[in-house]
């Protein structure tokens, strides 16, 4: 009698632990995981695309390897998200001071039809001087987005124009081109700047 109770309690206990482990897995690694809803971006070394920067230079993922890198997608006809991201990034770079000069900071357009090299040059000129603007043929922009696992979509607006839905996260890579982390859209500076510092310090560790 007594023994059977113990067995029953034991079984219930094991069940409860299993349930907790299950819930834990679901939340952390399983389908309930909050962040990696999409896939992780590829390492820069595994990407393949050819674009042009705002000064007319041919660029690609290999251009970025060797220095820590911050990449984000947007478009210059974007009234809210993109100027906010660009001014957030400008603020982070100001906080980093001289260290910012050791990074690549790249804004890749998802709207190459309107964002010509000239349009990108004019636009990035209003933000932190470290920010480079990349554009190019639509198929190359698509390949870049695929590498970063970023998505974008053209959406018509009422006035006959269009806007773009797009991934607004900022991708951070170390100097070897491995993803360090991502910064969410409009993430507060006190969280964003330490993440960037992490990408910067992983260079030092990588070098030793």
């Amino acid at each position: 009698m007594q023994r059977r109770h113990v067995v029953q309690y034991g079984a219930a206990g094991v069940g409860a632990v299993a349930l907790m482990l299950g819930v834990g897995w679901w939340r952390v690694d399983g389908p309930g995981a909050p962040k990696p809803a999409g896939q992780r971006p590829l390492p820069l070394s595994a990407m393949d695309f050819r674009l042009t920067d705002h000064e007319g230079n041919e660029v690609g993922p290999e251009t970025l390897i060797g220095r820590p890198t911050m990449v984000f997608f947007g478009f210059t006809y974007c009234p809210d998200v993109c100027p906010t991201t660009l001014s957030d990034i400008s603020g982070w770079l100001e906080d980093l001071g001289d260290e910012a000069a050791r990074m690549n900071v790249v804004f890749i357009t998802v709207d190459p039809e309107r964002d010509t090299v000239e349009a990108m040059a004019e636009y990035v000129g209003y933000f932190h001087p470290a920010i480079r603007g990349w554009t190019g043929p639509a198929n190359q922009v698509a390949r870049a987005a695929e590498g970063f696992r970023a998505s974008y979509e053209r959406v018509p607006t009422e006035g006959g124009d269009y806007t773009m839905n797009h991934t607004a996260s900022v991708f951070l890579f170390d100097a070897k081109g491995e993803l360090v982390t991502m910064i969410d859209y409009h993430e507060p500076r006190e969280f964003a700047v330490p993440k960037i510092r992490r990408a910067l310090t992983e260079v030092v560790e990588g070098a030793t």
Partner: peptide, 12 residues
């Protein structure tokens, strides 16, 4: 209104 979904995609 700008909304950003769980995948980090912003739309307006």
């Amino acid at each position: 209104e700008t909304k950003t979904n769980a995948d980090g995609v912003s739309s307006m």
